[in-house]
């Protein structure tokens, strides 16, 4: 009975894993095929037109490396700024009797409810007033600020679970508030910090709509806009696109997988109460 149950659950998990991996299999297989072979009735992984030439031309004949570098810069900076700001706000909200805390937290949550695409036009106008169109700064500001509400909630939720006694002991030892945060709280918050950073990184790494409006110089393109240039209304370079998609996805997937342990413990779904 026990054995049967085990086999059944293994079977179910295998089935769902196949479901989860199948689209990736399709992209991977397309990325090896010749340019015209996106449409083909074979499900085989390796066909007679397959080769690594798409990957080769991706690196030699396109600006892929530039896009990659830009995306790395932007994503790293957004992660630093976003998480840095969120630590401050999350910690204050978690530990101190801030005025209007409850309202503030509710407002933070409601910002998630506005359809983001409609903010494009106002964003553009704000950024052009600040002369930040066509610069990474514009992108950094928007990305970090739009992901802030989620990050603050997330970190506040985690800080809430840390026993207050830890800090009190440190305060008695003569630590300043900053030292307490830096030396006591942050080290034990590693899982939550890892997850929050991961989300920030992901947003910046994959965002498309805002980047397309803000960045105009091809030298500044991030990966998502760059990838889009392989597509056009009437002819997509599917092979190149799939190869690029694989390379773009790999770092995030690896990050996700290596942090998956933290995902389970660090993703706090804090309650809405203040």
């Amino acid at each position: 009975m026990r054995q049967l149950k085990k086999i059944l659950s293994l079977l179910t998990l295998t089935l769902f894993s196949l479901f989860a991996v199948f689209p990736i299999y399709v992209v991977l297989s397309t990325s090896f095929r010749g340019d015209n072979a996106f449409q083909s009735t074979s499900l085989e992984f390796w066909t007679k037109t397959s080769s690594i030439s798409n990957y080769f031309s991706l690196f030699t004949s396109t600006d892929f490396l530039t896009w990659m570098r830009n995306s790395l810069w932007v994503s790293a900076a957004v992660t630093l700024i976003g998480v840095g700001f969120a630590i401050g706000a999350g910690y204050s909200l978690s530990r101190f009797p801030i005025r209007g805390k409850k309202t503030g937290l509710l407002i933070l949550m409601t910002t998630q409810m506005f359809p983001c695409t409609m903010l494009l036009l106002p964003f553009y106008i704000v950024l052009s007033h600040l002369q930040l169109i066509n610069s990474f700064w514009g992108l950094l500001i928007i990305y970090s600020a739009t992901s802030l509400p989620f990050c603050i909630w997330q970190l506040k939720g985690f800080f809430d679970t840390i026993p207050k006694e830890l800090e009190e002991a440190a305060r008695l030892d003569g630590c300043s508030h900053f030292q307490v945060l830096y030396k006591v709280i942050l080290p034990v918050s590693l899982p939550a910090l890892a997850i929050t950073s991961l989300f920030n990184f992901m947003t910046a790494w994959t965002e498309y709509a805002i980047a397309a409006v803000v960045l105009q110089d091809p030298q500044l393109y991030t990966l998502s806009i760059g990838l889009k240039t392989f597509q056009s209304s009437l002819a997509t370079q599917w092979g190149l696109y799939a190869a690029a998609a694989i390379i773009v996805s790999v770092p995030v997937v690896i990050l996700f997988m290596s942090l998956s342990k933290f995902l389970v413990s660090g993703l706090t779904m804090g309650s809405v109460k203040g």
Binding site: A86, A89, T146
Partner: peptide, 29 residues
């Protein structure tokens, strides 16, 4: 509690500039 308010300030200001202002603009539109 100045410590708490000061470390909250950057997040607060950037939210006002990037989220609250465009939101108000949208209401006007």
């Amino acid at each position: 509690y100045r410590f708490a308010y000061w470390i909250m300030l950057p997040a607060f200001l950037s939210l006002i500039a990037v989220v609250i202002y465009p939101f108000g603009y949208n209401i006007a539109l």
